[in-house]
């Protein structure tokens, strides 16, 4: 009897939920906004699906019904990836500790 590959993916999924649960609980509350922007950026890894979809066309017709949706998804996900990571970087750069010499 063979195990359906779906079960493997489901296992990965469930275990990742648990990993996410424990990792996110340890995030300090003051960084909850960067947490949201970085999760936003990483969920845009959906772009890998978009890239595969956009290459559904052939050399003769790059744009067909299916690939157009792929290209649109690439643009949306790319906005999110670059925007999400950069804005997170910008926010995190602002978090500073008290300077000892200043006081």
């Amino acid at each position: 009897m063979e195990i359906d590959p779906f079960i493997f993916r489901l296992s990965i999924f469930i275990l990742s939920i648990f990993v996410g649960y424990y990792v996110v609980w340890s995030v300090t509350p003051s960084l909850h906004t960067p947490l949201m922007s970085v999760t936003n950026a990483i969920s845009s890894v959906i772009i890998v699906g978009a890239i595969i979809a956009s290459l559904a066309g052939t050399n003769l017709s790059v744009f067909n019904q299916s690939s157009i949706f792929g290209f649109l998804a690439i643009v949306l996900a790319a906005i999110n990836i670059f925007g999400g990571f950069l804005v997170t970087q910008r926010m995190l750069a602002m978090y500073k500790k008290k300077k000892k010499d200043k006081k």
Binding site: F13, V24, V45, V48, I52
Partner: peptide, 17 residues
């Protein structure tokens, strides 16, 4: 899409939210 990166990320983001 049977893509592990997406499944892991989706689960992480889902539980984080």
């Amino acid at each position: 899409l049977e893509n592990t990166a997406l499944i892991i990320t989706g689960a992480l983001v889902g539980s984080s939210g």
